[in-house]
Design a protein around this nucleic acid. Sequence first.
DNA 1: GCTACTTTTGCGAATGAGTCTCAAAACTCT
DNA 2: AGAGTTTTGAGACTCATTCGCAAAAGTAGC
Lengths: 145, 145
Amino acid sequence: MQEHEKLFKDFLKAKGLKLTLPRRVILDTIFTYHQHFNVDALYDVIRKDHQNVSRATIYRTMPLLVESGLIKQSLRCQSKDHYEHIYGHSDHLHFLCIKCGNIIEVESKEIEKTLKKLAATKNFDISDYNLGAKGVCESCQKKIL
Amino acid sequence: MQEHEKLFKDFLKAKGLKLTLPRRVILDTIFTYHQHFNVDALYDVIRKDHQNVSRATIYRTMPLLVESGLIKQSLRCQSKDHYEHIYGHSDHLHFLCIKCGNIIEVESKEIEKTLKKLAATKNFDISDYNLGAKGVCESCQKKIL
DNA sequence: GCTACTTTTGCGAATGAGTCTCAAAACTCT
DNA sequence: AGAGTTTTGAGACTCATTCGCAAAAGTAGC
């Protein structure tokens, strides 16, 4: 059993829940194929090998994965919630290109530090960051429109 | 005509569009009553005095207001898009309390500066920031669960 | 102010991501 | 294997947001 499976299993167990086959398939698929993803795309990938995992189950599993700390909710894009890995990935922020939809990831230690400092001044207990910007990426700027 | 009306009118004109009565009502209501708001709440307020402004028109006007730079899209909360003023408000970031739903606003010059610097290294042309964190606010931390 | 033209509006229908229900299936423990 | 719980898939459902359309309102030129 891989590391992330073990973590998820422990998390579930602590809540009296089970690491079932569909949950395992979802978790493994996420950690095999995807960086950023949304449920729809995930569903398509999963369906290739497992025709019997339903959308509902994926939707039901996402909050568990988020709560477990393995993934987090990320940008909302084209009216869909997106997710990204946390486990095994260092904090970073996103630049979302509004022309091509690509996401550029950038290390963000400094911003993170500042944010924590600010939160401390307000006695706010941060559970999750959301840092980024929308704009136009380098290659889209070069395209003549 | 108030300042923000003039700005919006000029913006619309430049696009060959018109500052109609419904658009004016929407704009004025936003700038009179609201800091953060969502379309639903805005609709209720507007309806008190103007029974003939439809939801569809509000939905259609929001992107124009965003594009004009008067307001921006903000946190998404309870499955609803939220908006906030920009015109007349300095940049700030949000701490959203996941217990009580309150939003704490904090000045963020420093983070902004860092973000701009990072964007510059990637040649990314920022049009809109999105900075914030979720967590638990001071008073909710004190509540015993 | 009136005409001709374009944009806008309100209404209700449509869309679509995400949630819920429920009976059947899968786990877990003994 | 059986009892008791949690999960699941399928499809119905919700509800924010968008769309289509015919009527209404703005605008520019007379």
